[in-house]
Amino acid sequence: MSILPQTTATPLGRAQAVTVAHSQPLYVGRVRAGFPSPADDHLDADIDLHAHVVKRPAATFFVRAEGDSMQGEGIHHGDLLVVDRSLEPLPGRVVIVALDGELTVKRLERVGQRFYLAAANSRYRPIPLEGREAHVWGVVTHVVHALPGAAS
């Protein structure tokens, strides 16, 4: 019986990351009727983390988080955030907002007709957007958080 906590990591193996116009198979056999070529099973390109995370290069920006208000979403001070500006800022999504001349990261929440910026840390209160100068800059899709031992 395992005494380890129930967080497990499953190795993914070599998978081919497929995105628009970014990754190319190194070689593609012709489509044939009849038996599939056994060689096609070995067609994988290297796993491309960038292509996995960046779906729309034109609209994707990397930004650096500073502060502890979003810890509950796994965003820590110094983390790298991947921001896709092409996504719609729907309630529930973590967004970058230009608020009073400053870029800030919070979760967009909606109560009735009112929008709020919610922190993920009980020490911070939600910020009502009503009557404030604010516009959504982009939607955060991923967090890159370095653990101890990672080369910076």
Binding site: F61, V63, R64, G67, S69, M70, L103, T104
Partner: peptide, 8 residues
Amino acid sequence: EELVRVKA
């Protein structure tokens, strides 16, 4: 090292 900084 020059990425834009956002307040969290």
